[in-house]
Amino acid sequence: MKRCRSMLFMPGNNPGMLASAQSLGADCVIFDMEDAVAQTEKDAARILIRHALTYMRPQGVGVAVRINALDTAFWKEDIAAVVRGGADFVLAPKTNGPDYVRELMAGLEAAEAEHGVKDARIVVFALVESALGIENAFAIASAHKRLGGMLLGAEDLTAELGARRSAGGDEIFHARSRILMACRAAGIRAIDTPFPFVTDLEALAADAAFAAQLGFDGKAAISPHHIVTINAAFSPSPEQINWAGRVMAVARRAAGEGKGVASLDGMMIDLPVIKRAERILAMCDGPVEDFHAN
């Protein structure tokens, strides 16, 4: 599994920003056709993103495109542009239930058929940002085999709840936990919501560290200045890497000797511990060449 520690939203109608996408340190960038683009600019952004994917595709960085929601007139044309340009991901906003996912997948497959794309490489991530979406989290996460992950969108959600966003994030703790649990149960990636207070990097560090502690695979960002902090929060420390390497060595030796369990520093090394060690070592991999091997 390749790293997806940071996913950076970038306005789809800003050519300068799209051109610099590969240089900002994010594991993945999200070219946005939705909220960052005015209604009158939708077609311009769609064309620009398709050209950016075709001629100036960021190298060594995963590329997602956030299309417009399924209740708009834009989404089918958006999907067609993504299929023709060839992104790694489609990010589906306002996902509120499994039917929504299935409708999107049908649209995606139709676009792929129309444009002769046979490899079905594009992975869909669901952006869950409503109370109904949170309640349906597992149904969404398990709705389709091409769904690769879920991302929490806390701004829309808290607006709907009537909650106020805080740096500490108490108001989204339940939503985070539901998303994470659903993703793990369905075996897909869980991506945390962006931190909304752009200039408060200290609070961002605490927020990202908390999301990593909960178990999220990565975190979205609305500012390129958040990337370094987020990447650091979702990267294992040298001590963790060292521990994981030693666990794997002990486990290999035990397996070679036909033992089911072993111990390290007085701690029993069993399957859950080995899985945790594997997960840490996987987080050390270089950035994205293949997002599709979930």
Binding site: S20, S23, L24, G25, P224, H225, V228
Partner: peptide, 11 residues
């Protein structure tokens, strides 16, 4: 500067 490209160069 807040220019993210300048920061990428700096890093």
């Amino acid at each position: 500067t807040r220019d993210p490209v300048a920061h990428a160069i700096a890093r």
